[in-house]
């Protein structure tokens, strides 16, 4: 199952490394990454494949969210379908 992970927050050293480490620990494969700095805010969007994840997707969402909070980042993981529904006819 494919999902979109978004990471938004103040830029700091090691954000990508940390998020990727967590994803790889959980058996989630990163398919694509785009990253920019928007008005000092770090904004990263990742397309991931969570089909082989070690935990249920809802739990992965929580893990990412909590890990983000600890670093002052807002991390969302959402199934890709919602973006399909809202932005594609």
């Amino acid at each position: 199952m494919r999902a979109i992970v978004t990471v938004i927050g103040k830029d700091q050293v090691g954000i990508i490394a940390r998020v990727c480490a967590l994803l790889s620990e959980q058996g989630v494969n990163v398919l694509d990454i785009s990253q920019t700095i928007l008005q000092e805010y770090f904004t990263m969007i990742m397309l991931v494949d969570a089909a082989q994840a070690k935990v249920p997707f809802a739990e992965l969402v929580k893990l990412l969210e909590e890990d983000g909070k600890a670093q002052g980042l807002v991390i969302h993981a959402q199934r890709e379908d919602i973006f399909n529904a809202m932005h594609r006819i």
Binding site: T6, D32, S34, T43, I45, L47, H76, F83, M86, H87
Partner: peptide, 14 residues
């Protein structure tokens, strides 16, 4: 991103 651009994704998040 292969399917969405960043603006679309951030739109939904916002």
């Amino acid at each position: 991103m292969p399917m969405f651009n960043s603006n679309e994704i951030l739109d939904t998040i916002h």
